[in-house]
Design a protein around this nucleic acid. Structure first.
Length: 496
DNA sequence: ATTAGGG
DNA sequence: CCCTAAT
């Protein structure tokens, strides 16, 4: 009962959530021919995309939500009218609509960055280094990367001249945009040649064309409203003190001392020189991806040598990995015999592409589990594009719908489980809130620690976080909650 | 099977 | 990341 209500609420929220982005109405004033063309193509693309990626646009869900709470969602709907209107709901406001929207353009000047900084940004964007010294090139690339990855939904960036422009919709100040925008605007088409990212999701990217708007409709900041980060969310899910994990660990420890038969399986052999040590290689084989068996593969007739990294251990070892170890050993020996290509090939392909863009190494570090055995901690650095996809996904489906996001936005990334997404999001939140108040926190100590996430993204994260913080707990509090304004336009001291 | 949280 | 508890 209650759950149902909850679900409906979520549904509503997700539908209402911003950015059904009607593309080109950016240029309120005078739509040029160019613009129209653009719009046309864009629409076409969108409809195509819709086929494979259900967008609530016309779905009953939207209607439902509309009737669900009439007055309540008004603000939301208003923010999404535009082109949307012709599709679904009433054309209440005729299409001649006055410039309801305007652009609050914020320029992210890549120009101001030094080459070194550009390099860092580049690395974060594409996950790989570059040796190019050409500033212009770098800027272009980065801009492209950013735009590209945002694409599908609600991109917030467009390229204009040489700078990256971030468009933002605001309802309050409807100042017109300079029409020159149309002229200089370079619409970035997704299929950016050799963009290393997005290995397989061309379909997804097809729907690109920037121009879209992420309409976070800030409403009139009527209420000052308190800050969200105050209360750490009233009711967290209560947890009974975990036990199994602890038990397991302690068990391991004790086992280590006694050095029983199990230890051999677990390859934690207390004495590396002991005969039991043979168990060791089993785990190692997989760990150092370089030693892996390779086989000839007539892939595309090129006869490439593909690492025979069976997909077997792609996923982390679940529960009893001791058992799995044995199994995987068996599988390794067995695999080369029968080669089921099709699927396997795909995976390989994927992995190749994947690794080619930066983390060439299968960052599967074996972490000596303190006392226990060795556990693989495969660490895949999150690339900027991934982060952006994540942010994107959250903005569309809402935080918490990790499986959804996983399925739709991360379809092509075989790793990155929904849990990973969740974790990353948590980190992003932390970062977005912690870093902005005062950046003096971490000095220059860690230069290459990890590429700082570009400010705009953190900003978005914060926005989304706030949205959720204020809309989730509400439910019983009634609808009056005039979405506390709080213009999130704080000057960004960011990097970009 | 998915999600939230702790470590 | 990994792991568990809760749903």
């Amino acid at each position: 009962m209650l759950q149902k209500v909850k679900q409906e609420e979520r549904l509503r929220l997700s539908c209402a959530s911003p950015d059904r982005s009607s593309d080109c109405k950016i240029m309120d004033g005078k739509p040029s021919d160019q613009l129209n063309k653009l719009r046309a193509s864009n629409e076409k693309l969108q409809s195509e995309v819709t086929l494979q990626e259900p967008i609530p646009l016309l779905s009953p869900r939207l209607n439902k939500s509309q009737t669900y709470e009439k007055g309540g969602t008004e603000t939301f709907l208003r923010s999404t009218d535009g082109l949307l209107n012709n599709g679904s709901s009433a054309s209440a406001h005729s299409t001649s609509s006055k410039p309801d929207f305007s652009i609050l353009k914020e320029e992210i000047c890549l120009d101001n960055l030094s080459i070194k900084e550009l390099h860092e940004t580049f690395k974060a964007t594409f996950g790989r280094e570059t040796s190019v010294k050409d500033k212009l090139w770098l800027k272009r690339r980065i801009a492209m990367g950013l735009t590209n990855s945002c694409d599908v939904s609600t991109t917030t960036f467009i390229i204009r001249g040489k700078t990256l422009v971030r468009n933002k919709v605001t309802e309050e100040n409807s100042k017109s945009v300079d029409t020159t925008l149309t002229k200089d605007q370079v619409v970035v088409n997704d299929n950016c040649k050799d963009l290393p990212s997005n290995p397989t999701n061309q379909m997804e990217d097809q729907g690109v064309l920037s121009g879209k708007i992420f309409g976070k409709s800030d409403v009139e900041s009527g209420y000052k409203s308190e800050d969200i980060h105050m209360e750490e969310r009233a009711a967290k899910r209560v947890r009974k003190p975990t036990r199994r994990y602890i038990e397991e660990l302690s068990e391991v420890e004790s086992r280590e001392c006694s050095g029983r038969f199990l230890s051999s399986v677990k390859n934690t052999g207390p004495t590396p020189s002991s005969p039991k040590y043979i168990a060791r290689p089993v785990s190692n084989v997989r760990s150092d991806g370089t030693v892996v068996v390779t086989r000839q593969d007539s892939l595309g007739g090129s006869g490439v040598l593909v690492p025979y990294v069976s997909r077997v251990r792609r996923g982390r070892p679940r529960k009893n990995f001791m058992a799995l170890m044995v199994i995987s050993k068996a599988e390794k020996e067995k695999q080369p015999v029968f080669t089921c290509r099709s699927e396997h090939q795909q995976n390989v392909e994927l992995e190749n592409l994947d690794s080619s863009r930066g983390n060439s190494d299968d960052n599967v570090v074996t972490v000596p589990t303190a006392k226990g055995g060795t556990r693989r901690k495969h660490h895949r650095a999150w690339t900027l594009t991934e982060v952006m996809k994540l942010v994107e996904g959250v903005s569309r489906y809402g935080a918490g719908r990790w499986s959804e996001i996983k399925r739709l936005a991360f379809a092509s990334y075989t790793y990155r489980t929904s849990v990973d997404l969740k974790d990353k999001w948590r980190n992003l939140l932390r970062a977005s809130f912690a870093q902005s108040p005062t950046d003096k926190g971490m000095k220059n100590s860690r230069k290459h620690a990890s590429m700082p996430i570009p400010a705009p993204i953190l900003l978005r994260v914060r926005e989304l976080a706030e949205m959720h913080a204020q809309s989730a707990p509400d439910l019983s509090s009634g609808k009056l909650a005039g979405r506390s304004g709080r213009n999130v336009n704080e000057a960004r001291t960011g990097y970009l």
